[in-house]
């Protein structure tokens, strides 16, 4: 068996043992169900597809929760092993450092995928089958699942990079929380501030491109502008007319947010002496 799979398998087994998988799945499932039930209440008479509404609310939930879960899952993946002393032994085994790193990131992404697909899947099925849907809504829901896992992957990779750069677990935890604040809360505020303060100075056509610098915004754009019916309920119809990033480009950028930090982590890890 490939060493990457051995490492990934162990991470998943760890996730099952310490109930990370169960916990994350439950949190996502509970919130998704709550949103699905609340979201479907006011739309009944408007003739809209409830599933499309659910996609909009789940996308907002994902932006807050999935990066947080990913960061908490991965911030100590390297520094924790170094601190406990298990890393030294692992590195004397016949595996490359790339195997070890990719295995860990893959394992954590699988944990997130299980939590997202199970947690959201239940809510999506309940709404879609019970209250009405159309093929486009299902496609939007599928895109939501895929991009949620990718967003999680991006933050898993970022957290792993952090885990390599710091010397103590506590520092890694602090940086992880700071990253969450920066990407999920502060970034949008900063862009908004720039938009207001820079009126007439900065070309407004620049702003859509700024959003690509944040994986959470890329995720938002991909989900809220990807499909017509979703676009309508997300309040993004106007914005989407201005921003003409195709879904392919957005998925590509989100993928780059996974690969980029991972590649940086590989470079750092190869030079690291223990």
């Amino acid at each position: 068996m490939s060493p990457i799979l051995v490492i990934a398998g162990k991470e998943i087994a760890d996730g099952l043992r310490n109930r990370w998988i169960v916990g994350a799945t439950l949190v996502l499932a509970l919130l998704a169900c709550a949103l699905a039930l609340l979201g479907s209440a006011p739309t009944g008479s408007l003739g809209v597809k409830p599933l499309a509404v659910t996609v909009v609310s789940l996308a907002s939930l994902t932006i807050f929760l999935v990066p947080l879960i990913a960061l908490l899952l991965s911030y100590d993946s390297i520094v924790g092993e170094v601190e406990r002393g298990t890393m030294l032994l692992l590195l004397t085994y016949p595996i490359t450092r790339a195997d070890l790193l990719i295995g860990k990131v893959l394992g954590h992404c699988c944990i997130l995928a299980i939590a997202t697909v199970v947690g959201y899947g239940g809510a999506g099925l309940a709404v879609g089958l019970g209250q009405g849907s159309d093929p486009q809504s299902w496609a939007a829901f599928g895109l939501l699942l895929v991009t949620s896992v990718m967003l999680g992957g991006a933050f898993v990779a970022l957290a792993t990079l952090v885990s390599l750069l710091v010397r103590e677990r506590g520092t890694a935890a602090g940086v992880a929380v700071a990253l969450w604040l920066a990407f999920v809360v502060l970034f949008d505020l900063a862009v908004l501030g720039l938009l207001v303060a820079g009126q007439g100075v900065i070309d407004p056509r620049l702003f859509p491109w700024l959003l690509l610098a944040n994986p959470a915004d890329v995720f938002r754009l991909a989900n809220l502008t990807g499909f017509d019916n979703v676009r309508m309920f997300s309040g993004m119809a106007g914005l989407a007319a201005d921003i003409r990033f195709g879904p392919g480009l957005l998925l590509g950028v989100l993928g780059a947010w996974v690969i980029g930090p991972l590649a940086a982590a590989l470079l750092v890890f190869r030079r690291r002496e223990l």
Binding site: D14, R17, N18, R84, G85, T86, L88, L89, T92, Y93, P94, I95, T96
Partner: peptide
């Protein structure tokens, strides 16, 4: 990597995953 298969190492204060 084949070289490392021929090595056995016991670190000082060896640590494992507690769980």
């Amino acid at each position: 990597l084949a070289f490392r298969r021929q090595l056995g190492f016991l670190p000082e204060n060896v640590a494992f995953h507690d769980e």
